[in-house]
């Protein structure tokens, strides 16, 4: 599979180490259709290719949006791109958040750090189909107030009456009047009915482990909890072997897994 040419429309700084890049399809006006939770392989000429989850709105496909944390050569090269520059895109790949399964249930989204990026398309979808769902809750944890992603949008979501948003930081500062504490501590008080809830979580593995524990303690069934895993990916089509997680290929069997299908591996070390 070869990359399809896309063009940079906008690069926008989110936090000190994170930015959002907006791309448009050079060849297809309709752009790329994708499901919330899927990812693309982004290729920067001469620098290489990395997997990045799609963070934009699945109902509006003309603009392809990714939020990237600068952690290596390719992500740094992506940040340096200017409007009009080329980005090669392969995708979309992988499994999606179970937004349909959530219908007529409560939905709780638990995100940590950059994990809010892959969760955001699910939230766009839920809000676009708001009537089909019960209570919708977004619980988001960041390191410090200045690490909070999509701050303006979070404030808009908070102002809605049909969406519960709780944001917490691990470390507060003078400017912060919100919650201080890790994101799993928000779960016991979040307004959802544990027996009729679909929970979706994305963030560092440690954060997801304790999130799952808190959800289970609350009474959410393990087959109603979904986690998004991260592994090294090179081919994204299940051929290169890098992303193996037990017998699963995270690129095609994931990244979104129903928790009970990976529970036997979730607390194992170095798998």
């Amino acid at each position: 599979m070869t990359p399809v040419p896309f063009m940079v429309k906008k690069v926008q700084r989110d936090t000190a180490d994170t930015f959002t890049i907006v791309l448009t399809d050079v060849e297809r006006v309709t752009g790329m259709t994708f499901a919330p939770g899927q990812f693309n392989m982004l290729y920067v000429f001469g620098a290489g290719e990395i997997p990045v989850s799609i963070s934009g709105d699945p109902t509006s496909t003309k603009k392809l949006i990714h939020t990237v944390r600068v952690v290596g050569t390719v992500s740094r090269a992506l940040r340096r791109l200017r409007v009009g520059d080329f980005v090669g895109v392969r995708g979309p790949f992988g499994t999606a958040w179970p937004v349909q399964k959530g219908e007529s249930n409560d939905v709780v989204l638990v995100a940590g750090g950059i994990g809010l990026a892959p969760i955001r398309p699910a939230l766009y979808y839920l809000l676009a189909n708001r009537k089909k769902y019960g209570k919708i809750t977004l619980l988001y944890g960041a390191r410090t107030p200045s690490d909070i992603l999509y701050r303006t949008e979070l404030e808009q979501w908070r102002a809605r009456f049909d969406l519960e948003v709780e944001v917490t930081v691990d470390h507060g500062d003078d400017t912060w009047w919100g919650n201080v504490g890790v994101v799993p501590t928000l779960i016991p008080r979040a307004p959802f009915d544990p027996l009729n809830t679909i929970a979706m979580t994305c963030g560092p593995e440690v954060m997801m482990r304790f999130t799952v524990m808190a959800l289970r303690k609350r009474g959410v069934n393990t087959d109603d909890i979904y986690v998004s895993m991260e592994r090294n990916m090179k081919c994204a089509i299940g051929l290169c072997g890098h992303c193996q997680f037990g017998g699963k290929f995270v690129c095609k069997d994931g990244p979104v897994f129903r928790y009970d299908t990976v529970a036997h591996l979730f607390n194992k070390r170095e798998v």
């Binding site: 991260e230 592994r231 798998v271």
Partner: peptide, 22 residues
């Protein structure tokens, strides 16, 4: 490539399987 290299399972921050045993 080989699953015996550190690079093989590298994600930002380090290898998923740093030990030879793993």
């Amino acid at each position: 490539d080989s699953c015996f290299t550190m690079d093989f399972s590298y994600i930002h921050g380090g290898s998923v399987r740093p030990s030879a045993k793993a």
